[in-house]
Simulated assay, not measured.
Amino acid sequence: MARRPTIKDIARRAGVSESAVSFALNGRPGVSDGTRARIRRVAEELGWRPDSAARALSGERVGAVGLVLARPAHTLGVESFFLQLVSGIQEALSAAGTPLLFQVAEDLDAECALYRRWWAERRVDGVLVVDPRTRDPRPALLTALGLPAVTVGDPRPAPPLSSVWADDARAMVQVLDHLAALGHRRIVHVAGLPDLAHTARRIDSLRIEARRRGLRPDEVRSVPTDYSDAEGAAATRRVLCAPRPPTALVYDNDVMAVAGAAVAAGLGIPVPARLSLVAWDDSALCRVTHPRLTALVRDTAGFGRLAAEELLAVLAGGPPRVRQAEQPRLEPRESTAPPPPAY
């Protein structure tokens, strides 16, 4: 294996002292502009990069940020939302030359333990925090550690954290407006994990809007799942086999919506003639399923870019702030139609 180039190698190649190399590469005075340029050119030719461990020991920034996902591992491989989100995050960080340290944790306790370890080992300069909880220990922990952070999905972050978020409540209103205009009055929301803040906002919005429209709470309701296709299918089967099944189902992700469509087909329930389906967060799955699924569309990669850009701004000394991402918009397709008269 080739040896990593050192400051001594650069000094020998450039014909200067090691202290001159240190001054030049760390932006300190003590060398002329011409010498500084020559040293940096030699460093680039040799493929030299700063030693992040040494920089951490000296108290400097290590030049990396972290992201932890505390989700069931079996739900991540098939859900396109996080793939698109991480793609946008990586795009913004790559443009800034900042690496991303990414890890999946078993649960929230494991995630918090990772933050403590990263802070103690000075592995990252800051973190992106996804999936805000209704009772979330992470903001207090990160504040106590002094680890800069941006939460993704929290409209009211705990000071001094920054946040980027999308309005899930208004998105749910769009869905209900569409279904109510078609004549649906029995609507079930196949929700995600109930302790996630954005899930709670969707559930609350559904309940508030149903009450405002005079719809019965036993016929417009939410059922929680873990976001997986298996639980989405099981929830779909339960509600469709009930004495008064819904005429419309709203799913919290694309994977559950496609699984639900398969369950309906297996039960002999045609979509949309007897059952309308709506998916949260559009994807290729929604567009290739037959019939194509009505879905909420947003720029998820752009959401990730916004989060990463905000974290970079915080690390550059910017003030904490809250930034709202593009509002999701409903795109009606062939999976929604008026309910049959008998229903």
Rank of each mutant, 00 (worst) to 15 (best):
R122Q: 12
R122V: 02
R123P: 01
G126M: 10
L128A: 00
L128E: 00
L128C: 02
D131R: 12
D131Q: 12
D131F: 12
R133T: 05
T134C: 11
R135K: 13
D136G: 03
P137S: 00
P139W: 12
P139K: 12
A140W: 03
A140K: 10
A140H: 06
L141P: 05
L142Y: 06
L142A: 01
L142Q: 04
L147G: 03
L147W: 11
A149M: 00
A149T: 01
T151K: 04
R156T: 13
P157R: 01
A158I: 08
A158R: 14
P160M: 03
L161Y: 00
S163G: 02
A166M: 15
A166N: 13
D167M: 00
A169H: 06
R170Q: 15
A171T: 15
A171N: 04
A171Q: 10
M172F: 09
V173H: 14
Q174K: 13
V175F: 09
D177I: 03
H178K: 11
L179C: 11
A181M: 01
G183E: 07
H184V: 09
H184W: 10
R185H: 13
H189N: 08
V190P: 07
A191H: 08
A191R: 09
L193T: 14
L193H: 14
P194A: 13
A197C: 03
H198I: 02
H198K: 07
T199F: 04
R201C: 03
R201H: 09
R202I: 07
R202Q: 13
D204Y: 01
L206H: 09
R207H: 12
I208K: 12
A210G: 14
R213S: 08
R213M: 07
L215M: 15
R216E: 15
P217D: 02
P217M: 07
D218F: 06
D218N: 08
E219L: 15
V220S: 02
V220L: 07
S222E: 01
S222Y: 01
S222L: 04
V223S: 06
V223P: 11
V223T: 13
V223C: 08
P224H: 10
P224E: 03
Y227P: 07
Y227T: 13
Y227I: 04
S228M: 05
S228T: 08
D229T: 12
A230M: 01
E231I: 00
E231Q: 15
G232W: 10
T236N: 06
R237I: 01
R237L: 15
R237G: 01
L240Y: 10
L240Q: 06
C241S: 15
C241E: 15
A242Q: 00
R244P: 04
P245A: 00
P246M: 05
P246Y: 10
P246E: 06
P246F: 10
P246D: 03
T247N: 05
L249D: 09
L249F: 13
V250R: 04
N253Y: 02
N253M: 09
N253G: 05
V255R: 10
V255E: 08
M256V: 11
V258P: 10
A259E: 02
A261M: 14
A262F: 01
V263R: 03
